[in-house]
Design a protein around this nucleic acid. Sequence first.
DNA 1: GTCTATAGACTGATAGAC
DNA 2: GTCTATCAGTCTATAGAC
Lengths: 223, 223
Amino acid sequence: MSTDTTRSAILTAAERLYAERGFGDVTLRDIVATAGVNLAAVNYHFGSKDELIAELFVTRSIVTNRQRLNELKAAESAGGGRAPIEAVLRALVGPTLRGCLGPDSQRSDAARFMIRAAIETIPPIRKIKNREIDHLRKFAAAMRRSLPGKPDAEIYWGLHFALAMAQQTVRDSERLLRLSEGACDLDDVDGVIDRVVAVASLALKTNMTGEAEAAERAEARKR
Amino acid sequence: MSTDTTRSAILTAAERLYAERGFGDVTLRDIVATAGVNLAAVNYHFGSKDELIAELFVTRSIVTNRQRLNELKAAESAGGGRAPIEAVLRALVGPTLRGCLGPDSQRSDAARFMIRAAIETIPPIRKIKNREIDHLRKFAAAMRRSLPGKPDAEIYWGLHFALAMAQQTVRDSERLLRLSEGACDLDDVDGVIDRVVAVASLALKTNMTGEAEAAERAEARKR
DNA sequence: GTCTATAGACTGATAGAC
DNA sequence: GTCTATCAGTCTATAGAC
């Protein structure tokens, strides 16, 4: 068995098992048994269990990030270098939600792996997430082009809230389904994307930093 | 050493170590060494490692949930049984954000433990979170009283997004701080609560289910 | 209730033969 | 690159002295 097939077999088996059973319940011995390779091969090819998980996560993240940037570029090109804020936010949250939500995501090991990664955040994955700030900065810049004059803090809060709604919907989809008893349809991925984009862009378009608004909020706080 | 002090010593030591180093890096032997008690005492008092973690999490959750309900009750009493939607949302997200954000939370083991629990979601904690749906139902009911005629799905999405923004701000505060390079002030807890409440109530007050709005969103999707 | 001592199984990681 | 064998660590769980 050549180098590449052993390596690939480990990656494929690991992704499937992590997707099915989560990170805590899968041992290296489970993975090598499924892959039909030797235990020491994991350390030889990846160095450690954490690095194996990191490789899986990085591979999948790159795909999502590229989709995001492609959508952003397409939207900005169509608008002559400036896209409406809705389009920028859609490029940001669309790929993640399409990848992790909807009926199809049940069948893809890659999608279920990324859902697990969103739920059971373990150290090797967290370290990688902390490195994606440069990627997000490109979206902050595009948002600034969409909303010239908007204070930076507002841009960052809007970006943060958009990601928060998207990621928490992936993380806690089960809770929302049970709470709403089916009233919220998570299989309608485009509908979910519309909602997240609508709320985030509504927040960004509304002036929430002016004195009048701050006073109103302070008033509401007292009530 | 009496029963209670041993039990308490284990809880105190466990909370501090989990807060400092996370769940994956702390063994029962670390805990009993810090607590100055015997290894077998953990099994005697808690049954298992997971039940020890569950006890810690439940204890802290009860405090937060009670604060939430107290604030909700106070707001609804002041309004004669119906509170403005802002007040309901504030009661929902305020206790969590006040507990986990701000300069003080750095010094409290309890706060740092809950932040860890929000970040490193492990099975025993996830099981408990799944049981808090009944608690959230009380807020859905209060929101329905605040916004009579609002479709249930809109209520649930609003509740979900409010929690998403609050919880993700706790989870990913470091990312937001680094991304914004200090432009977003997470030490201003009241300001953060204001923002979350403002965005969520804005989304709930705006009609996003009407035909005109759906058409507009469909249009925006094409652009 | 607390402790010592220990069982038995499992984990990730690695040295060294091939 | 692959394998065997093994290390040092972890876990739950328990028997039995005090």
